[in-house]
Design a protein around this nucleic acid. Structure first.
Lengths: 330, 330
DNA sequence: TTGAAAGCGCTAACAG
DNA sequence: CTGTTAGCGCTTTCAA
């Protein structure tokens, strides 16, 4: 490793001058600057970021915590955050928390010790106390906590209402719901949205709601149980696209034709839904925009010490594909 | 931030002693140790990793470079690397290179300046010169370069041969291939494996090979062109699962029944294939094991300065699902 | 068994 | 416009 000192020696200046050239904030006479630049070039010198970080207390690293990197929603989000942060010369770190509070805490601690500048946390198990105790700038995704932590969310409940209403408008007489894990805020909101629309229907019964745990296999089992028990169901609102594809597959395995006999709509708008057969109708989140927005808020919080807190809510949008269809009158 | 100095003051020892307790390598008398531990506890002290890194020149960070985080193969791989490295108290960083040499170089430079301890690079555009010039410990995935860089690969060519042979054994008279981008080593190997089996068949013609660029949309278009031009095709060997699902979907859109009229086999063994309808037969890579193996090699290289180089090759395995089927004699 | 002190490589006062 | 110098927080000789 060549150091700033060697550059200084070669250029016959002090390390301070080299530093000035490196950060070009202070004025340096044109030809000394040239000498320094030549020396840097000749020695193939690259500043040591660690020393810089130690001095400044800022690492130019930001992190994204996701509960499950295998769920295709998160790579899409990560992509957005990465694009924004790379643009601003931050290094982007992706951390997988498994929805495990212990693991998340461990990561928070490790990153704090590494002076990571900011964190975006997706819908985790973080408690309100933990959130308030945070000393690193943080943006919460899919989660609004009544404290001064910024958040970016979508209108889950209204989106769910819209999805169920859409199924009804297609002529689905009875609509069931496959929900996410109930400790999850957004899974609860989506279920509540479903309930808003159906709870006063005379046909509605509690076991029209089954839990698929935001997990492919669990959702397959749940769908199978549901459709076996209730063959009369004509519409299915599924809590996310991953489970939506599972439902699609399971229904077909059971010999139920989608969309002719059963219309399925899910939630998220991930690419996976497009590739399903039939392609999946969904309430799409603007995933990329959400990531960009979260990243921008975080960067603003890092740069301007001003503790301004944002709570941005995006709207989901109905994307009609081939898993839903107007029912023939019988 | 509490520092080691404050701890030392409170415990009435020198910073050196605190450091000894922290790293418990040197001997410290039991009760001074106790005093220090109490002080650490009372002050809720956490050592500053950046200072440590500066002194030691090692950051305890390792990185994984992937060409496309949206391709579901990579999250599965990332998961494996993360598990191994977390176990050993490394922080894991995921970087998306877009298969872009510029971007990859930028990342390599940035991480080097941050004293990242090691990098696992997936099938990138890295040249042999670049690879040889590497000063950070590196493991190459899906790429074997004739230099002293360790690599972990799979037997792409033999796997491809096996896939095509399998299709023939099902009774598929004519088998076509949707290939990946030809600058990609493994895409070329898979195509070569296909050619090994079919190039001497009297029915074979060059335009039975079309490129899908390891990309969903491109593969859809390629499949459409291929099957329209050559309705006589009975078997399709697709270069990876992502394109395999695209082919599946496109064939069905064209009214071709899979597997009755057309058998499709792909390559990789990602979860996506299981969720497809019909589920996708594939030559599965042991993705998790590959990640674990690469991580272990890297860690060994980091820890034992011994410049031992490994070249590990894994075997792919045929997983028969519902997109292939023995043909009825006609 | 412990402490003093010299750095790791860089930046930013403060002088000049 | 440039150099001197004092750290950022930690680890590790070297002495005691």
């Amino acid at each position: 490793m060549t150091t700033i000192r060697e550059v200084a020696t070669l250029a016959e200046v002090s390390t301070a001058t080299v530093s000035r050239v490196l950060n070009n904030n202070s004025n340096v006479k044109a030809d000394t600057k040239k000498r320094v630049e030549d020396a840097i070039e000749r020695l193939n010198y690259h500043p040591n970021d660690v020393a810089r970080t130690l001095y400044k207390g800022q690492s130019k690293i930001i992190a994204l915590f996701v509960p499950d990197i295998m769920n295709p929603y998160y790579p899409e989000l990560a992509r957005a955050v990465e694009d924004v942060t790379n643009d601003q010369n931050y290094t982007f770190v992706l951390c997988n928390t498994d929805g495990d509070n212990q693991k998340e805490q461990a990561y928070r601690k490790a990153l704090k010790q590494k002076k990571v500048d900011g964190i975006i946390i997706v819908s985790s198990t973080i408690t309100e106390e933990e959130a308030s105790a945070l000393t690193t700038p943080t943006v919460l995704l899919d989660r609004k906590i009544t404290s001064n932590i910024s958040s970016v969310t979508v209108n889950n409940r209204e989106g769910a209402r819209e999805a169920v209403t859409f199924l009804k408008s297609l002529g689905c007489a009875k609509v069931a719901h496959i929900s996410g894990p109930q400790q999850d805020t957004n899974a609860r909101s989506r279920r509540d949205g479903y309930l808003d629309v159906v709870k006063n229907e005379k046909w509605f019964q509690q076991d029209y709601i089954v839990s698929g745990d935001y997990n492919f296999e669990a959702a397959q089992q749940a769908t199978k149980d549901l459709l076996t028990r209730h063959p009369e169901i004509e519409g299915l609102f599924v809590g996310n696209d991953l489970m939506g594809v599972a439902a699609l597959k399971t229904a077909q395995d059971l010999g139920i034709r989608v969309p002719e006999q059963l219309s399925i709509i899910a939630f998220d708008g991930i690419t996976l839904g497009k590739t399903a057969i039939p392609s999946l109708t969904t309430m799409a989140q603007p995933i990329y925009d959400i990531g960009v927005c979260a990243a921008n808020i975080l960067l603003e919080q890092i740069n301007e010490k001003a503790t301004k807190t944002y709570h941005k809510e995006f709207s989901v949008e109905l994307i009609e594909r081939d898993s839903t269809k107007k029912r023939e009158r019988t």
